[in-house]
């Protein structure tokens, strides 16, 4: 098992290197003068020359690549041409907000997708199944950013149920400790602020989760269907196990394995969809950072964000695999080598 953990860690490291390489290649694909782009739109000739020096753009490509990797390992992804701040610290400051949004979206996704998928599988081929699948098809096709705009318009502006501004409204933002506004409010026992933070998160999180609910529910449905058709379910029926226990205890338990994998990958995709949702709600997060970087033609900040989101994606996949290894006896036993 230790061997497999190390092997998995090695694969993750390889993926990180690969992502860094892809980002480096992308940064050299920029048409025209890279130093000019890196220095920003309003840089003077000396500034551009200075940037060319610091970026080492006059050195051979291999040396540039090596320097890039060394800097990346030390947590240096360059400075933003727009804010003149380090890209890593700029993103680091807003990353908790994005993670908070994505975790919230993930909770909504799982809470809705698992029951929907199970209901659909249990009623396979009947009216309930068809209705759920139709809803999922429609909801899965809605673009998140448009849904975000529509939700904000309907529930924020017309009905006034939710705040349309981005940050906490009542007592201002809670003291910045972890950067997770819900957690910070909790830490200070400020419950009105907790509610307020959740209120601000709810609409963006719902918009964010829409397409993921469809994918995950379909996955749960097909896993449940094949689980329910398996011999061990028939055996359980022949033992006199009641239907509720058959579905939840026998079916869902074994169906959730691959659902967990999908949910883990969705976490990474959600971080990327968060770019769109944060842009709509102007939530301060990696997405907004990226959006502003794009608008301001701050290419190196964009690429820094790409690298960091890739990093989050790889780490999530790693964590999911390790968690699965520890809870799923099928995976665990294969790894231990007992057949």
């Amino acid at each position: 098992m230790v061997y497999f953990i190390f092997r998995r860690l090695g694969l993750a490291a390889l993926s990180l290197w690969g992502v860094a390489t892809i980002v480096f290649v992308m940064s050299r694909l920029i048409p025209g003068d890279i130093a000019g782009v890196a220095a920003g739109r309003f840089a003077s000739a000396e500034q551009i020359e200075h940037v060319r020096e610091t970026l080492g753009l006059n050195k051979p490509l291999v040396v540039q690549y090596w320097d890039f990797l060394v800097h990346a390992v030390h947590g240096d992804l360059g400075t933003s041409a727009y804010t003149h701040q380090s890209v890593v610290s700029g993103i680091g400051a807003v990353l908790p907000a994005t993670i908070q949004l994505v975790v919230c979206g993930m909770i909504i996704t799982i809470l809705l997708a698992v029951p929907l998928g199970v209901l659909s599988a249990v009623n396979e081929g009947r009216g309930g199944d068809t209705a759920i699948r139709l809803i999922l098809v429609l909801e899965g096709g809605v673009p998140v950013f448009w849904l975000a705009i529509m939700l904000r318009w309907i529930f924020g502006s017309i009905l006034g149920w939710f705040p349309i501004s981005s940050t906490n409204s009542l007592n201002g933002a809670p003291p910045h400790v972890t950067g997770f506004s819900v957690l910070d409010s909790l830490l200070f026992g400020d419950f009105s602020n907790v509610l307020d933070s959740v209120g601000h998160l709810l609409l963006p999180a719902i918009a964010l989760s829409a397409p993921f609910i469809a994918t995950l529910a379909r996955n749960v449905r097909s896993n449940m269907m094949s689980a329910l058709k398996s011999d061990y379910i028939t055996f359980a029926v022949s033992k006199g196990v009641p239907p509720g226990r058959i579905v939840i205890h026998h079916g869902l338990r074994s169906a959730l394995g691959s659902t967990l994998t999908i949910a883990g990958m969705q976490f990474g995709w959600m971080v990327s969809s968060a770019v769109l949702v944060e842009a709509v709600f102007s939530l301060p997060g990696v997405g907004s950072y990226m959006y502003h970087a794009i608008v301001n033609h701050d290419t190196f900040a964009v690429l820094g964000a790409v690298l960091i989101i890739g990093f989050v994606f790889i780490v999530t996949a790693l964590i999911v695999d390790l968690v699965q290894m520890s809870i799923d006896p099928r995976v665990r036993n294969v790894q231990v080598g007992v057949a």
Partner: peptide, 22 residues
């Protein structure tokens, strides 16, 4: 392995970075 590396960046972000660079 190269495919895996490409797939470890979510496609929206990869496309976003590339489109921004180009």
């Amino acid at each position: 392995r190269v495919c895996d590396m490409f797939m470890s960046i979510p496609s929206l972000v990869l496309a976003l970075g590339l489109a921004a660079a180009l």
